[in-house]
């Protein structure tokens, strides 16, 4: 369900800062435009839907605000906020449990709606990104965090709360599936990101 602006505004009036404004809350409120763009794009790539990406990012901002006291070190804000955002996206994916990236031929005949979604178009216009269509949610999550967000596999593991071995095996499976889809040869995933 899409969160509307009025409901957000009403919710905000009910919240108040407890105690003095901390460095952590300043860090959240001082998020730059680039950071907002990055969060929104990450959600969009994971969800494949601009409207849901907006809702997920907004929800992550509110959740972050509510749990701002749990952020001890403002230096770790990026990873902390990523975890909130990624968890929110995974919850949404679990709820809908359906493939978001529909092959182009299956899309034929539809008009408007998700067909014109900017995050869909990214996959439709690029052969390699289009090969992500066959990935499951967890595989897509690892691919996006490692190759788009440029996180090391250890950082990916920290963001999603999986053991690093699980991250590696899911990345390996994802690349294998993409290679098959692209009709490429076999290769091993590497720690190129760090």
């Amino acid at each position: 369900m899409r969160a509307t602006a009025p409901s957000v505004a009403i919710g905000l009036r009910e919240w108040s800062l407890t105690g003095s404004r901390t460095a952590a809350s300043d860090r959240l409120l001082g998020m730059s435009r680039a950071e907002l763009d990055r969060a929104y794009r990450l959600a969009g790539l994971l969800l494949g839907d601009a409207v849901e990406a907006e809702d997920a990012t907004q929800e992550a901002l509110l959740r972050a605000w509510q749990s701002i006291d749990s952020l001890r070190d403002p230096q770790g804000f990026g990873a902390w906020f990523d975890r909130i955002l990624v968890n929110g996206c995974r919850d949404r994916l679990r709820r809908r449990r359906k493939i978001r990236f529909i092959p182009l031929d299956a899309e034929a005949g539809t008009s408007g709606g998700i067909a014109g979604d900017p995050f869909r178009l990214v996959h439709d216009r690029d052969e390699v990104l289009g090969a992500m269509v066959g990935l499951d949610d967890d595989q897509r999550l690892v691919v996006v965090l490692h190759y788009w967000a440029d996180l090391t596999l250890q950082d990916v593991a920290n963001r999603v709360g999986w053991p690093i071995g699980t991250v590696k095996s899911r990345l390996h499976a994802a690349l294998e599936r993409m290679r098959r889809r692209l009709g490429e040869g076999i290769g091993e995933p590497t720690e190129a990101g760090g």
Binding site: A5, R33, L36, D37, A39, Y40, R41, G44, L45, A50, E54, T57, Q58, L61, P118, F119, V122
Partner: peptide, 9 residues
Amino acid sequence: QLPSAPPSL
């Protein structure tokens, strides 16, 4: 070319 965050955020 990924879209920028909407103004609502």
